[in-house]
Design a binder for these strands. Structure first.
Lengths: 146, 146
DNA sequence: GGATCAGTTGACAATCATTTGCAAATCAAC
DNA sequence: GTTGATTTGCAAATGATTGTCAACTGATCC
């Protein structure tokens, strides 16, 4: 028997976190979590479902949605709504960042700006609020200059 | 007979703009446009429909949706998706601004920051993009301080 | 290793927001 | 007023997501 599989170094072990929190780590959940931790794009529920079915034919779309909700509540993933269309999900591990969406290709580029973050906090404070979370999305087109 | 009603000064006359563009200004559209130009909140389609029905009982929700799409394409209104739930609309007249959403009350506070706008443009440029539009929403709670 | 049982699942119906098809109504031009 | 393309209301369709519920299954206890 091979050694028990380990989560790649540097990535948080959500499986362990979940079981520690008294939430059952079932096969479907494990499959979905693996997909989420191994991808670096922003798949929607249907896409996660497609990938999950390739691993375990019996997984249902309902379970994908339920697991997304579970993981979101857990802070393990983030839910996005780029443009219109289905929600898209992203592993919450790693640093916070915002998104630039290429209007022509749909590509999502991640970026981070401490200065913008600071300004946001400043504005919220001035208005008498504490920020719980925010959403910053830039929608643009590649510069023609090329 | 009273003088012909005029659009409040400073607000663009979408009715005129539409007819100039060869788009029919029908009664339902006029009613909906009036609602949009007279409100300063961010109603969703159902809310606009409710208000429209008070003016003209025969207006349908479909027409509200169709008119929203029409006006959006025209740049007359902006479509928002605060949190989850139905899209919410806002008259595009007036200066650009972003939104702070009160997570407890659902209140929407408008704000504007030239510095953030500038930083956004800077970031997009650095990534080789021109911004077509953006979305910045802060979700927060009133400071406990009070 | 097996029994236990609350948590979880898959299948499918239901819901919510939005869009569409179509016949009837309506607007702007003549 | 007549006309003809646009627009409307209605109802049915769609797409994304959630709810229901009987069947299943994973962690715990023996």
């Amino acid at each position: 028997m091979a050694k028990r599989q380990k989560v790649p170094a540097g990535k948080p072990d959500y499986v362990k976190e979940l079981s520690k929190a008294g939430i059952r780590v079932t096969r479907p959940r494990r499959v979905i979590i693996d997909i989420l931790t191994e991808t670096d794009d922003h798949p929607d529920a249907m896409e996660i479902f497609r990938r999950a079915v390739q691993v375990d034919k019996s997984i249902s779309l309902s379970t994908v949605y339920r697991t997304m909700k579970l993981l979101e509540g857990f802070g393990a993933i983030h839910r996005h709504a780029f443009g219109s269309g289905p929600a898209r999900f992203e592993n919450a591990a790693g640093e916070h960042h915002d998104h630039l969406i290429d209007l022509d290709t749909g590509d999502v580029i991640e970026f981070k700006s401490d200065r913008i973050e600071a300004l946001q906090a400043e504005i919220a404070q001035a208005l008498g609020y504490d920020i719980v979370h925010h959403r910053l999305e830039l929608y643009g087109r590649k510069k023609a200059s090329g």
